[in-house]
Design a protein around this nucleic acid. Structure first.
Length: 602
RNA sequence: GCCCCCGUAGCUCAGAGGAUAGAGCAGAGGUUUCCUAAACCUUUGGCCGCAGGUUCGACUCCUGCCGGGGGUACCA
């Protein structure tokens, strides 16, 4: 029971019910209504904060007791309100009856004090916690493939992973970001063959990654006519794995060009990795792991390949070695899990990878689980329960799957640049005197793209839509940034220190109350994002907060004029400015947790 | 064939047992003697894919069907 108000309501409600229905307590003491933790978890958020901050549905209880819900509720509420008068600890609460919903409301001053005092005191660390105790969360994200351009398809993993990285840091964990680059595998056999056949050094001068990508597409086209190419590619990859010098030199060249491209994008987006260890990093570590599985008696030979049979678990067999002896990505991922455990002793390891790879990760996790069972690893030291596949849907293009092989792909760099130049145009149109136009345009353009990507629940497929990504109005990143900039502007105009002369009772209109309610919930939202592994919850939250504040900002008083935040009434203004600063901090911090910056002017 | 995900307003999406199903975009109308109009207000628009079932209560859970997508061992 972490939410203080919620806890108070649960305690009071249990007590009130026992007082008003002593006969029920005697015969049915097992009912949830007598147990504060159960009440706590049943409390809901009403549709409209005007109805209250918390709602307890009593239908089930009424049914169990064969009573009318509204009448039961009425008697309960009377008893609850009686207690709020008698007991000082509960004096900030009041209860109302709405049919079968028992609604609790927190007194404005108390809610305002709880929300604003915490934010002003903790500033950027509002919402943070020490629950992680420095334990490690390993996050595998972004993970593009070498020799292919960084497509829009990699944006989701990058944006979600980066956000979770920051969320876990905020909760007191040590985040470890790993870019598991796709720098190994049969595809490099293909690249090597394609380069030898059609490529040369001169070709790669201007835009090497795009040229390499064209070779890759060409290879797949030619492969359809000429199946000998597939065999050549397999052989070339085998040569690479066997350490053939020429093959390695080519591979290294592809890798260097790609990394230069990727790093440009990461630095633009402010994404940081602690390790950029790709698949090739595990080359010399796989033999020992394969041996471990063999020793544990988990492997068998099937059609010449070394496999772990997972039929019992309704999964396809997990291949450790192909018939020709080469390893596969499952081998590398399994090795990666064991290596990371040994290196980081993590609390959890997250794999932010699209849902098409669901079966793959089930196989990998199952393989680890079987190994630990076979080796009789003590339960508390097992890795398998700590592994999480954070899966997300595809990015589709005009409702068709994007396919790197077919060349049907949008380059992320093009999207970012387009968004930035559009942001720049908007600034020149709307605020031409702005000092740092380039820097701000970059923040806004990136904010728009990242926000658009995170604004769909992660498991759903998203259709890439230029108009949506390049839209700066409505539910968008720039809308939040604009709200933040306007808050900053208020603070500049006010020009006095905030957090003095505060009388919270001044915050007495419904629009302000709603903002207070939302600010108070921020720490719980941070927690929920971590539990669901979905930054989309933060997206919705911030839109709600910004919307609620914008209503305060443009609220009209009885005379039909805007009820301005900065007015002649010094005390009222001081109090409202405390609210302004609180909203500003929460929006800034919320955006940070999404990987988006909050400009002070735009 | 088998397994998994998705189907909500013209479009893009929230809601995932509870109150009258909500936002944004697009359409219509309005708000600024300027606390940044990238905003705000009003308004049009819904058999929540279809049919059963469970429940005090179902867009939400279960079953079947229809439609879209993905996976289904030597690609990742």
């Amino acid at each position: 029971m972490k939410d203080k108000f919620r806890k108070d309501i649960a305690l009071l409600t249990a007590e009130a019910f026992a007082l008003s229905f002593p006969e029920v307590k005697e015969h049915h003491s097992e009912l949830f209504i007598f147990d504060p933790p159960q009440i706590y978890s049943r409390l809901e958020t009403p549709r409209d904060s005007q109805m209250g901050n918390y709602a307890l549905p009593l239908f089930e209880l009424a049914k169990a007791l064969k009573k009318n819900p509204a009448e039961l509720n009425k008697k309960l509420a009377e008893s609850q309100n009686g207690l709020t008068l008698e007991t000082k600890e509960f004096s900030h609460l009041s209860f109302t009856v709405a049919g079968g919903f028992n609604n609790a409301r927190i007194k404005t001053e108390i809610l305002a004090k709880a929300a604003i005092d915490s934010v002003l005191e903790e500033e950027e660390s509002y919402g943070s916690s020490d629950e992680g105790q420095g334990r490690k969360i390993v996050i595998d994200f972004s993970s593009p493939n070498i020799a292919k351009p960084f497509g829009i398809g990699h944006l989701r993993s990058t944006a979600i992973g980066n956000s979770l990285y920051r969320i876990y840091q905020k909760l007191g964990y040590t985040s470890v970001g790993i870019n598991h680059l796709g720098d190994w595998g049969t595809q490099f056999g293909k690249m090597i063959v394609a380069y030898r056949k059609w490529g040369d050094e001169k070709l790669l001068q201007d835009e090497p990654v795009k040229r390499l990508f064209e070779l890759y597409v060409k290879f797949h086209k030619e492969e359809e006519q000429d199946t000998a190419l597939s065999d050549m590619a397999r052989e070339a990859f085998k040569a690479l794995e066997d350490g053939n010098e020429e093959a390695i030199a080519l591979w290294q060249k592809f890798k260097d060009y790609s990394m230069a491209d990727f790093n440009k994008i990461y630095s633009m987006m402010g994404v940081h990795f602690d390790y950029q260890t790709g698949e090739s990093f595990y080359n010399d570590k796989m033999d020992a792991v394969i041996e471990r599985f063999q020793k544990a008696g988990l492997t068998e030979i099937s059609d010449g390949a070394l496999i772990i049979n997972l039929e019992k678990f309704n999964l396809p067999a997990c291949l450790l070695r192909r018939a020709d002896g080469a390893t596969l990505y499952a081998t590398r991922d399994i090795t990666g899990v064991l290596y990371r455990w040994q290196t980081f002793n993590f609390e959890k390891a997250l794999y932010v990878v699209c849902s098409a790879q669901r079966d793959h990760f089930r196989q990998v996790f199952k393989a680890i689980e079987l190994l630990e069972e076979a080796e009789k690893v003590p339960v508390e030291k097992r890795i398998a329960p700590r592994l999480v596949h954070v899966e997300f849907g595809w990015i589709k293009l005009e409702n068709a799957m994007m396919s790197t092989r077919k060349g049907n792909i949008i380059f992320l760099e093009d999207v970012l640049n387009k968004a930035i130049s559009l942001a720049s145009e908007k600034i020149i149109e709307k605020n031409p005197d702005l000092k740092e136009i380039d820097k701000t345009a970059k923040q806004i353009g990136l904010g728009a793209v990242i926000f658009a990507d995170l604004s769909t629940r992660k498991e759903k497929d998203v259709n890439f839509d230029w108009d949506k990504v390049l839209n700066f109005e409505g539910e968008t990143g720039p809308y939040l940034q604009y709200t933040h900039a306007r808050l900053c502007s208020l603070i500049r105009n006010y020009g006095k220190p905030i957090n003095s002369n505060i009388n919270y009772a001044y915050l007495n209109n419904p629009e302000e109350y709603r903002v207070l309610d939302i600010i108070y919930r921020f720490p719980f939202i941070v927690r929920e994002v971590a539990d669901a592994y979905d930054p989309n919850l933060m997206v919705s939250y911030l839109l709600e907060l910004a919307g609620a504040f914008n209503k305060v900002y443009q609220r009209k008083s009885a005379d039909g004029k805007i009820d301005k935040i900065i007015s002649d009434d010094a005390d009222l203004t001081a109090t409202r400015m405390a609210l302004v600063e609180s909203v500003r901090i929460v929006i800034q911090e919320g955006l940070y947790l999404l990987g988006i910056s909050a400009p002070e002017e735009m």
